[in-house]
């Protein structure tokens, strides 16, 4: 691939001009998104390896009181734009503003949280720069010679991890789902450089008419201590009623695999895995779940993993602490009974 044959739609890139690792720090609704701050963790590692700066980038209106946060979690620099035109989020305006900043400063890497808004605006940013982008990365490495970011994710095909690079283009962009990385230690004594950037912000073509918060009482699965999770092996939505009983008894919540979500037995907010959520429960009970890599990825940070599956060959058993080979329709009621019995003593 020589430089002479590049697509004329692409901007020419001189890789040597691009330096620095940027983390896009979401600051919507007046607070810094924790999922963004988590990315300062792999960001720090990458920046140290190629000896460059780790920079937090923030967009918004009235965010001045938030701009030190990325420094506290490990960035050495923050670049932010504080402008009334950014007071309401629209994907195009936010994405174009970020594109303008990237063109000006030329960072070699940009990581962003794969929140709903992140997944909406970051691919637009990448495309407008004709840059390579990968979604839902589960880990990173960096090639110190070429400074290529190695973006790692399980592809279609489950048990393997693909290593993806964009060797000819800069910046290199990736999104990462919340809770894939741990929040770095906060240190409020850390100091760093804060740059307020004034930049042309495009006129919005779309208009936010109203926004309304939806109250959800339930504990989200990413915060739950105990999770009883069901897969396609449950065979029907009724299976989840049984799991709910057990979850309630244990003071936990139910979750599911993607196949359970695809079947419509449980909502997508409760999907565990690479394209769902990563959970940190101290106890995770996987029922009728085979243990595909994309699922296992979501329970890397879980404490004890229990597997209930009627197939002794199911990969989940290789990835669990305690396993019972049996039909869940028999084991779950037996577990419920056993717990009740011990409590009544």
């Amino acid at each position: 691939m020589s430089g002479s044959s590049i697509c004329p739609e692409w901007e020419l890139v001189n890789k040597d001009e691009w330096r620095g690792v940027w983390i896009f720090i979401e600051a919507f609704e007046g607070e810094v998104n924790e999922a963004s701050l988590q990315l300062l963790n792999p960001g720090r590692r990458i920046a140290d390896k190629i000896k460059t700066d780790l920079v937090g980038v923030m967009l918004g209106y009235n965010i001045k009181h938030l701009v030190n946060e990325p420094i506290y979690y490990g960035a050495e620099k923050v670049i932010y734009v504080d402008d009334p035109r950014l007071s309401t989020y629209t994907p195009e305006v936010y994405a174009e503003t970020l594109v303008a900043l990237i063109r000006k400063y030329k960072p070699e890497i940009l990581l962003a949280a794969g929140t709903l808004r992140g997944r909406e605006m970051i691919p637009y940013v990448a495309n407008t720069l004709r840059a390579g982008i990968t979604a839902d990365c589960t880990d990173f490495d960096v090639d110190v010679n070429t400074r290529d970011l190695i973006m790692i994710r399980p592809p279609f095909g489950a048990t393997l991890l693909a290593h993806i690079r964009a060797p000819e283009r800069r910046p290199q962009l990736s999104t990462v789902r919340p809770n894939v990385f741990k929040l770095p230690q906060k240190d409020t004594s850390r100091k760093g450089e804060i740059i307020e950037e004034r930049i042309e912000i495009p006129k919005p073509r779309i208009k936010l008419i109203s926004t309304e918060e939806v109250k959800i009482e339930e504990i989200p699965i990413e915060k739950a201590e105990i999770i009883v999770s069901g897969g396609r092996g449950l065979g029907s939505p009724d299976g989840f009623k049984l799991l709910e009983k057990l979850a309630e008894l244990l003071g936990g919540v139910v979750a599911g695999s993607r196949k359970a979500v695809d079947a419509g037995w449980i909502p997508h907010e409760k999907q565990v895995g690479q394209t769902g959520k990563s959970v940190k429960a101290s106890l995770y009970i996987a029922v009728g779940i085979s243990g595909a890599a994309q699922h296992l990825f979501g329970i890397r940070e879980a404490g004890i993993v229990v597997a209930i599956n009627n197939d002794p060959e199911a990969p989940i058993f290789e990835n669990a602490d305690y396993g019972v080979v049996a039909d869940y329709r028999e084991v779950i009621p037996a577990l419920i009974e056993e717990i009740m019995m011990r409590r009544s003593k």
Binding site: R130, A131, G132, I133, T134, I150, M151, P154, P155, G157, T159, L160, L161, A162, H163, I164, R165, A166, P167, E168, R169, A293, L296, F297, I299, R300, V305, P312, F317, E318, N319, A320, D321, Y322, G323, V324, V325, A326, E330, V331, A334, E337, E338
Partner: peptide, 27 residues
């Protein structure tokens, strides 16, 4: 396409205890 899939490697698994109940009786 700017991105290249370079190689695929086996997923490193999280070490777990892998104890299985030995028996048929669900109780």
């Amino acid at each position: 396409s700017p991105t290249r899939v370079e190689k695929s490697i086996a997923t490193p698994s999280i070490p777990r205890k892998k104890q299985k109940f030995d028996g048929q009786d669900v109780r």
